[in-house]
Write a protein that binds this DNA or RNA. Structure first.
Lengths: 149, 149
DNA sequence: ATCTTATTATGAATTGTTCACAATAAGTGT
DNA sequence: ACACTTATTGTGAACAATTCATAATAAGAT
């Protein structure tokens, strides 16, 4: 009963196009892909697509809230299909790997700052920085600080 | 007893230069400035400085942990002098204003994710998105979604 | 005062992204 | 099925933020 991609696109008031379907499909295979990764994946099915179109498609899907865009420091924007839940991300400071992290508390854990200086807070975004399992194993073969130096 | 900027630079093993001092001074006046804002501020004292040099100086000071770099989604990198404490940021989705937010709990609140998927978490970074007091007052005169659309 | 080396200036290059506009194709009504 | 309207894509150029290579300069040590 998982809604068909085509249906969710239509439900969002958008036209269903092969490139949009292909992008959603690519994001299923690549849960945290940047524009270029999506482009390369889609290109296999549609050799004529351009990077700019991928940008446009990703932008449209993001605006329609069918996908979510995250922009970790030191990396290009990443897109993910998992939406609607308040989950966060752990990012490897060595290789850039991204891992979903559920809220520690059942609901938005950090949503109540002690003092927000009068801000009307709408959302809280948490990014955990550390070493992924693989990079913990290999002490420091990786190019060190490719992210966040 | 606040350490002189020159001393902290020296203590970090770096040479004390007029441009580094000027950048630190600029960041005192502008608590969350991007490179261009720092450049313009420093330029008033040192008309011959270049943006590239400001980049280099900011990079050096960041690496020496004399300043901290934050990279909010949709905005260029910002730098701040307040370091050494685990504080977070509230950012206005309308005008981009940045406000420091102390940890809700005394110490790193979100540092214990329920399940980090094997990651060795080093730091947690929290970004609160919402409307600053000024933008709450003015319903929507601002260009809407200049950040985070 | 000299010398070594870190730092800055200069200029060009790169990356990620957006824009304007013409070509195409989705969905709607016939 | 057919035509029509308009969203969407392709094309090409532009842009912003940042980094790089190299030569010139200035900090700090001798």
């Amino acid at each position: 009963m998982t809604p068909e991609p085509a249906d969710s696109i239509r439900a969002a008031g958008l036209r269903v196009t092969t490139q949009r379907l292909a992008v959603l499909e690519a994001l299923d295979a690549l849960p945290h892909a940047d524009t270029d990764a999506v482009f390369r994946a889609v290109q296999k099915q549609q050799p004529d697509i351009t990077v700019q179109s991928v940008y446009v498609v990703l932008g449209a899907l993001t605006e329609a809230a069918l996908i979510r865009r995250i922009e970790p420091a030191g990396s290009p924007a990443l897109y993910e299909r998992r939406i609607g839940d308040n989950h966060h991300h752990a990012i490897c400071t060595s290789c850039g790997a991204v891992q979903d992290v559920d809220c520690a508390v059942g609901h938005a854990p950090c949503l109540s700052p002690s003092e927000a200086g009068g801000f009307a807070i709408a959302t809280a975004e948490v990014t955990y920085w550390g070493l992924c399992p693989a990079c913990q194993a290999v002490p420091s073969t990786q190019p060190e600080s490719s992210l966040r130096n």
